[in-house]
Each structure stands twice: as C-alpha cells, then as structure tokens.
C-alpha cells in the first residue's frame, strides 16, 4: 500500500475523518457497483450466461462450497510452492550475480532480455517436458515469477551507500560480514518489492498453467465452466482466486513490515511494476 501513501503523502498526519474517507469511500464505491450490477441484471433481464447477478455468484459459492474448496487447495499449494521456489532461486541468483563482476556482465543483459519477452508463451513447452500435471503449473509460475525477483534483488544488493561500504572496509570487515550486515539489509526493500511483483506473476503462471493443462485447480474450473456456459461458476472461481492472490500479497506485506522492523530499516519502497 506504499502507492496509497505516496499519492496521499501530502497529508500524512491525518485526522480521523480522513481515514474514514480513505476506507469508506472505496468500499462504498465497490458496494454501490455491486448493487448496481445486481439491479441492472434484474431489470434488464441480462441472460445469466452473459452476466449473472452477484447473488447468483454468491449462491454458487454457498452451494458448491465443498467442490470449489477442493479445487482451491491445489491452486493455493501450487501458488505457495511456486512463490517459495521463485523467491529462493531469485535471491540466490541475484546474490551470485552481484558477487562477481564477470558473472554480472555475462548474464545480466540476458536476464533483462527475458524480462521483456512474453515468457507465458513457453507454457506449452513445459507441457511437452513435464506432462499435464501440477508440476507444469508450478514450473510455469516459477519461470515467470523468477525474473522480477532477480532483477529487483540485484538492484537492491548494489544500492548500499558507498560511504557505508567504505566505512566497513576501513574497519576491516570481511566480505561476508559486509554482505550480512550492510548489503542484505539495504536490499530488503527491493527484495520485497520484487517478491510483490513475483507473487502476482506466480498467480498468472499457475492460472495459465491450469488453463492449458486442464487437470484440476481453479483455472481448470474456470475453463470448464466457461465452456459449459456457467458464467456464475466462472465468477465464483475468480472470487476465490482474488482471495488467494490478496491473501498471499498480504502475507508478503506483513512479512516485509516485520522483517524491516527487525532490521530497523527504512520504509518500504513502492513497487509499481
């Protein structure tokens, strides 16, 4: 939510009314939109295949709770696994890249290049290599989430203030000590910014993986229900996906808050990517 702070940063010391406005207005808007959607669907007699009213989506969510939950679990576990693997791999590779000038100059342009090309298009290749299954979804997710984490972390690791590094060197700190006590803490906001982009990418990867492998998961439900013209079920699955996405993002935001407080670091940088 660093974005919000940045845009309304002018009045940081806010009175109560302002907080109320900042919370109530958007929520109220969302509520009005949903109400409008419901009313329009009913008065204009929109065919439920085209756009079911929110109440129909709610009915699906309530009645098919067990089935939907069954399909939510694989998507959730794939997302978490994909995110963890992408983060560990991304940070490790960024550390390797920044520790050697040769490695950096050799590999970094390639990694930036990979940022630009539409990696999602490789998904069918992963099916050829790994078959249709959960592994494919996870690997697709890792593959597309990995690059923003590497680039962001690498940027962070080289962004420590030169004065501080000089001080460390003149105090005869070892490379490892400098890394542990200076470079890494300085890089933390960048790492988390990369992870936030990464987690939205992981969701894209998992859903697209499920679209095209069509074995299980919410992506599968969406494709299946869309093919059968059950739009309410599609929307119900999307609601659950949104919950997963926001939940994971929230966990990372919370972790960022805790870790940065632990290191006594600066405020999180805004990750607009």
């Amino acid at each position: 939510m660093a974005l919000l702070d940045a845009i309304s940063g002018a009045d940081a010391a806010v009175p109560n009314g302002r907080i109320l406005r900042l919370v109530l207005l958007p929520l109220g808007f969302a509520a009005v939109m949903i109400a409008l959607w419901q009313i329009l669907c009913q008065t204009l007699q929109v065919r439920p295949i085209l756009l079911p009213p929110p109440s129909a989506v709610w009915t699906v969510l309530r009645d098919n709770y067990a089935i939907l939950l069954d399909q939510t679990l694989p998507t959730l576990s794939e997302s978490i696994l994909g995110f963890v693997v992408a983060s560990v791999l991304g940070v490790a590779i960024a550390v390797a890249l920044t520790s050697s000038r040769w490695l950096r100059e050799a590999l970094y342009p390639g990694i930036v290049m990979f940022q630009l090309i539409p990696k999602i298009a490789l998904a069918p290749l992963f099916i050829v290599w790994l078959g249709v299954g959960e592994t494919t979804s996870v690997v697709v997710a890792v593959f597309i989430a990995f690059f923003p984490i590497v680039v962001s972390t690498a940027t962070g690791l080289v962004s420590a203030k030169p004065e501080v590094l000089q001080l460390c060197k003149s105090l005869t700190a070892s490379e490892w000590q400098i890394f542990r006590m200076v470079r890494f803490p300085y890089a933390l906001p960048y790492i988390f910014a990369g992870m936030k982009v990464g987690v939205t990418m992981v969701m894209i990867g998992v859903v697209v993986g499920e679209f095209i492998t069509a074995q299980n998961g919410l992506g599968y439900i969406i494709m299946f229900a869309a093919g059968a013209g059950e739009t309410a079920t599609v929307l119900a699955a999307i609601v659950l996906l949104c919950v997963i996405g926001l939940g994971l993002y929230g966990v990372i935001g919370l972790a960022e808050l805790l870790v940065l407080r632990w290191f006594g670091g600066e405020a999180p940088i805004s990750g607009v990517i």
Partner: peptide
C-alpha cells in the same frame, strides 16, 4: 480528490488480483 479517494484503492486492488482468470469471460462476452 473525491474520485481519487474512491477509485484509487480499487485500482490498486485490481492491480493485485489475478486478472488473467477473466480471459474466458471476455470470450463469452
């Protein structure tokens, strides 16, 4: 300002959720 307060958080929300999942809906529409 009122529009910003109203819309901006919702825009950020949409930025975070997996919009890709809506693709089949566009095909239906």
């Amino acid at each position: 300002r009122p529009l910003r307060d109203t819309l901006y958080p919702n825009l950020v929300f949409f930025q975070l959720v997996p919009k890709v999942a809506l693709a089949p809906l566009f095909v239906i529409w």
